[in-house]
């Protein structure tokens, strides 16, 4: 009991962080599944969602600022795809990746300019920002909400991919891009839709993440973005359940490592885990075996 009491806060923090990484990593994994593109700007879209909320809530009440934050984030994801990725669709994959890195730095520097580099306080969202006690640990309600909400959103997403027409198109494109195009799938609208879903989940993730860690900075998206990317690779990039499970494993392990007193190594551990997984199972936990197309 004593053991649980002292370690409960670490595990709670791990589950909560894991859920937030999960929401971001879905964006990475879906885009990769369809375009074979690692969208490095995704972490920064997450950061922009944080700032959008900060600035919107300064002028309007929450029932307006939250929906608008989500709309702005979704629009941003859509625009980034149209401006920076779509023109490069037939270019080599490396060029589009460089374009993604460019977008990432562009967004970060815009944020530096707008905020003049000062950290901003995230607005307090009532109820989910309140503190509660679980056993011996005091935490925010958002910690408990995060895994539940993540679970619901993932189920909804899986259903959407499985049973709707656009979901079917997405699966077809993930299997074979050119053929599905020949079969009459409107690739541009499907890709836009993928980015919209990814950005929507990133916006929800940012609401939860910044309610917990209330400081938004222009580089706030970099580390969560990187970890979420690791989670996506860990779970097998392209697989949604894989990304979610990978994210939870990374979030929990990271916090347990910190709880053991090896704080210095918590990030090193995350990335060491990535290397080990890639060596042992190059396609990740749930990754499909790549079939060579002849």
């Amino acid at each position: 009991m004593e053991f649980i009491n002292t370690n409960l806060p670490y595990i709670l923090a791990g589950i909560s962080v894991g859920g937030q990484y999960a929401l971001i990593s879905i964006g990475y994994t879906m885009v990769y599944g369809i375009l074979r593109l690692i969208n490095f700007a995704h972490g920064d879209i997450f950061m922009v969602a944080g700032f959008a909320m900060v600035y919107l809530s300064a002028t309007s009440p929450l029932y307006i600022s939250i929906p608008f934050t989500i709309i702005i984030t979704v629009l941003l994801g859509f625009v980034v795809e149209r401006v920076a990725y779509k023109p490069l669709r037939s270019a080599p994959r490396m060029s589009i990746m460089i374009s993604a890195i460019g977008v990432s730095y562009f967004l970060q520097n815009c944020a530096w300019y707008v905020t003049s580099g000062l950290a901003k306080q995230y607005p307090k969202i009532p109820w989910i920002g309140d503190s509660i006690s679980i056993g011996s640990a005091t935490t925010k309600i958002v910690t408990v909400i995060t895994p539940i909400l993540t679970f619901i959103l993932v189920i909804a997403l899986v259903l959407l991919i499985k049973y709707t027409k656009i979901g079917m198109a997405m699966r077809a494109m993930a299997k074979d891009f050119e053929t599905s195009q020949l079969m009459g799938v409107k690739i541009n609208s499907v890709i836009s839709f993928t980015f919209i879903i990814g950005s929507f989940l990133a916006a929800i993730g940012s609401l939860l993440y910044f309610t917990n860690y209330t400081t938004v900075t222009p580089i706030a998206g970099a580390m969560p973005g990187l970890k979420a990317f690791v989670a996506a690779v860990f779970g097998g990039i392209g697989s949604i359940p894989g990304a979610v499970i990978g994210a939870f494993i990374i979030g929990i392990c990271e916090n347990i490592i910190k709880g053991l007193g090896w704080t210095t190594f918590s990030d090193a551990f995350t990335f060491a885990l990535l290397i080990i997984i890639l060596v042992a199972k190059p396609t990740g936990l749930f990754g499909e075996k790549s079939t060579d197309k002849v």
């Binding site: 002292t6 806060p9 670490y10 923090a13 962080v17 640990a137 935490t139 860690y213 400081t215 580089i219 706030a220 970099a222 580390m223 969560p224 990271e254 916090n255 910190k258 709880g259 007193g261 704080t263 210095t264 918590s266 990030d267």
Partner: peptide
């Protein structure tokens, strides 16, 4: 004594250690 790394934003574990 404990240390954290560049870009770290989760300090709950550190604070828990301090309390414990």
């Amino acid at each position: 004594e404990e240390t954290f790394q560049e870009g770290n934003s989760d300090f709950t574990a550190y604070l828990t250690t301090a309390v414990n």
